[in-house]
Write a protein that binds this DNA or RNA. Sequence first.
DNA 1: CACTTTAGGCTAACGACGTTAGCTCGTCAA
DNA 2: TTGACGAGCTAACGTCGTTAGCCTAAAGTG
Lengths: 182, 182
Amino acid sequence: MRERLTGRQAEIVDAARELLEAGGPEAVTMRAIAESLGIQAPSLYKHFPDKEALESALVAAGFVEQAEAFVAASRSRNPLTALARAYRSWATAHPHLYLLMTSRPLERDRLPEGVEAAAAAPIVKACGGDADRARAAWAFAHGMTSLELADRFPPDADLDAAWRSGIDALRAPHATQPRSTT
Amino acid sequence: MRERLTGRQAEIVDAARELLEAGGPEAVTMRAIAESLGIQAPSLYKHFPDKEALESALVAAGFVEQAEAFVAASRSRNPLTALARAYRSWATAHPHLYLLMTSRPLERDRLPEGVEAAAAAPIVKACGGDADRARAAWAFAHGMTSLELADRFPPDADLDAAWRSGIDALRAPHATQPRSTT
DNA sequence: CACTTTAGGCTAACGACGTTAGCTCGTCAA
DNA sequence: TTGACGAGCTAACGTCGTTAGCCTAAAGTG
């Protein structure tokens, strides 16, 4: 959505989000959304062309929230640790939305202008301006989070320790061999 | 699936896999699977209790293949780099199956005994036995892969450089502070 | 050999889903 | 007063996963 949502659209997205967070993705049906607004399913198509567009609006809202959390965390001393904590805790607070945001290919034209950069900037800064290292750190955080949400780690794994180990390693570019840094 | 698949089950899984790799997840319908075997959809229920069980078998087959690729890669000198390459290339060769394998929570009782450990062992070994660091490395690889498949990196990002940066950082536990290593 | 069980097909049908077509009705500008 | 339009409605379609129930050929079994 390049342009802002109308009031009614925002209500619809809110309803969808409540269903999503309460009952997971398969609870988000057009009929259920409509019912929780007291209308009929086909009426939703007066506000969104299809379900995918509605979900894109949901995802976009998630990105904005997440970016805000990142910016807040980056104001900490020890920003990398704070960012990691923020990343993990936002995702575990909204697991279904996080999954929705990360599972499907990104439609950049439906995102508010600049969110992507706004979310990325604090990470790059925390990595001393090294964009490649920042991407690696982002991937690490996303990987930890997504594996945790998908219940992939063995039950006896110490996730806090794994986070610390990764953050420690990724913090300072420790210059083993000189390489292009983009 | 704790017990081995019957021949017919294996044929069904193969058909499903072909549909998945050719047309993505929404191409994998019970009717399409049945048609590509020359039977009717309800007949599939003589072999699998429901679609989810069928997909679990698909996922299990994927894990076995992936584990084999890891074991092969770990025989390289420079095993961490080889493992990362193997991880990325297996996933990009089978993107839909990889997504299916990683998106839903893992049902361990449907996996062949020991695959999980078999896939994890080479990574732990490549990380000098540090299990937390191995989990961090795994998360990094999964994160890079999943963000790449979901088209999350900006178009100008140098993914090879990001991979190198992460691997360099994660290779040796470089002992900043002493902490429990599980 | 006669009989029964069972594996593995089939058709018909159900309910939930996303979606379309087409109607109605109230609000508001010209 | 009238016309446009925003926003609701009902009815219905096609697709999906799935169930119920039938049929037939092969495999045991007395």
